[in-house]
Design a binder for these strands. Structure first.
Lengths: 196, 196
DNA sequence: ACCCGCATGTAAGTCGTTACATGATTCT
DNA sequence: AGAATCATGTAACGACTTACATGCGGGT
């Protein structure tokens, strides 16, 4: 079973969904830490069904195309339960922005500072979005968030990781940009008119 | 040009290296934010050379197999300089541990807490390793670290991102584990003997 | 005698993205 | 009239992993 399979089971353990619905979920909430396109989801659903982890029933609709609604089976739930507590095999990090930072010493300093400021904004906006969600969850879901056997606690936990991540990323971008600009303005006093 | 190509150029902009050396670097320093196996590196080097970004010379060795030592060209340096300031195309995050957290509400609570404690340790150890490196760099490289046009500043910047990342990850793991265990021990008082 | 480090490659397979393909209904 | 949403698939391609393949020299 692939990790994508468990991502799908995680969604289906909360509610029955069609392939199309799953694709939408992968763009929103779940997409913050796992994502997939429909072209990957439909074949994976077929494999999950073949393995007995999900079943589907066709729901006929008028004024909309018919759809296949998938539900998780007892075997699917059990597989998900077991997978959730297995330590993940450590996969190498690949962060293109950090890789760019590794070569930033060669770059035009002004352009580099601008780029890192831009990335700081991107992460800052994502963070603001997460904080909104967090406020909503804390208001709407209240006591559930303290119960680790509630799916709401689990959703909240993933959101908290997102918040930490974006905060760290934004702060780091700001530090890089500040370091570049700080040195440039310092330079002007030390080597007046040396460049530009 | 692929991102791996720029990772290789980033290394070659600092020193000339063989395919074997590059593979080693990808396990260490650079491997913290980009990694590749030798099976990916050798063909990529051939493509880079075809594109005129690197050249190689054969270094004959006695008591060791001969090796091809690669160096970056002026065109390679220019391509790297330009790439470094282009904002990266945002790639979807895929974090298996967060995905597991999303289904943790279904899992055995004790096993789940143990797993997250284990991950907290893993990240904590990585963090300790980074902090050691940081202390070494700050001691050894001193003033270079304030100069954004020094390759040492760039290396230090990537290390700082690693530190923030591991700190955030470790703290989040601890929060998840605490939440699970906190609720379980609270439960014993509230619903004495209800389960277990 | 066997394993480890140095050194360089190719081949097969998996995972994921982009593009191809179709078709009905609703909104602008 | 044309775009967007709902709905489900397949095909081609690229990036990355695992495994296959070879060979010398030095240490246990």
């Amino acid at each position: 079973m692939t990790t994508l399979g468990y991502a799908i089971l995680g969604l289906l353990s909360r509610e029955d969904l069609s392939g199309y619905d799953l694709t939408q979920r992968m763009k929103g909430r779940v997409g913050y830490f796992w994502s997939a396109r429909h072209s990957q989801i439909y074949p994976e659903l077929a494999r999950l069904e073949e393995g007995g982890y999900v079943t589907h029933s066709v729901v006929e609709q008028q004024e909309r195309p018919d759809k296949k609604v998938y539900g998780i089976t007892a075997e699917g739930l059990e597989a998900l339960r077991e997978w959730a507590v297995q330590p993940p095999v450590p996969k190498p990090t690949r962060d293109e922005l950090v890789l760019k930072a590794y070569s930033v010493w060669l770059a035009d300093q002004e352009e580099a500072a601008r780029m890192f400021r831009g990335e700081e904004s991107r992460h800052g906006e994502q963070l603001a979005h997460y904080e909104e969600l967090r406020a909503w969850m804390e208001g709407e879901w209240g006591e559930d968030l303290a119960n680790p056997e509630s799916h709401r606690f689990a959703t909240y936990a993933t959101l908290r990781r997102g918040i930490t991540y974006e905060m760290g990323a934004a702060e780091w971008c700001r530090w890089v940009a500040d370091s570049i600009e700080g040195e440039r303005s310092g330079e002007k006093e030390k080597q007046r008119g040396a460049r530009s």
